[in-house]
Amino acid sequence: MKQPTGQISRLGTFKYLAQRFAFLSLIGLTFALMLIGKADTVIVERARTAVSDAVTPILRVMAEPAATISDFVTNLQELGAIRSQNADLREANTRLLEWQAVAQKLENENRQLRALLGTVNGPEARSVSARVVADSGGAFAQSILITAGGRDGVAKGQAVVTGEGLAGRITQAGFRSARALLITDINSRIPVRVGEAGDRAILAGNNSPRPRLIYLGVKSAIAPGDRVVTSGDAGAFPPGLPVGRVVVADEASAVIEPFVARDRLQYVEVLDFGLTGILAETAGAK
């Protein structure tokens, strides 16, 4: 073995020390970041927004093949079941037409009664459809990136829904993208009402697919199968959006199964109750 010359070994020591210094200062920086992030500063939000806005176009392209394959597989599956599905749909259609008649009658009646009472209607929702281009991935965080942002009227706090029910809430809105925190995330807290009695509770996520109910009244009698809907207590959230169904209810905990499955999220709608302008008018004109 050749002994390294003085210069090289000194250079090696220097490099080693520099690397060690870099490592320790970066570790310090991560803790600083954790504190800054914890304080929920505007800078962190801006950084998140800027990065999401920049990356969304790339993710949009990357999501394309998976979406195509998924659509193709779904089409194949549906093709196999097309006859039985057709029969089912015909049946459902007749049933729904009956329901439509009932709904129209009730709507008329409701309008007349409201007019009698002189109640003021709640704000109409304006909705924006968007594509899901990224799922935060893994069990560490549960959020999605969508292709609608500030330019489409999406703002922080709005509800994100699918046909099945509530998926989450907008936590950060950029120009062309927005992040929605899913109701299953560890940081998600949604005021809800449970069952027919409408007991108030908070739905708290824990990063598992099944969030739980906390701050449930002592006397409340909830049972598996009870529907959970938003209570609208937080303000920005419209009341009565379907959230999920109670699956476990005992003394220790109440666990719910959300109606919206995270892995089926391909398109979502963002509900905006703040801007009533356009839609309220068109709805009234109909």
């Binding site: 870099a22 970066l26 914890k38 560490f140 959020s143 995330d185």
Partner: peptide, 24 residues
Amino acid sequence: YGLGFFIGVLEDLLTGAPLGVGSL
């Protein structure tokens, strides 16, 4: 280490995970 740190920050920003955890 610098690039490792950068990737961690990028990941946290993109996934919505608490900032700094990925880098650490």
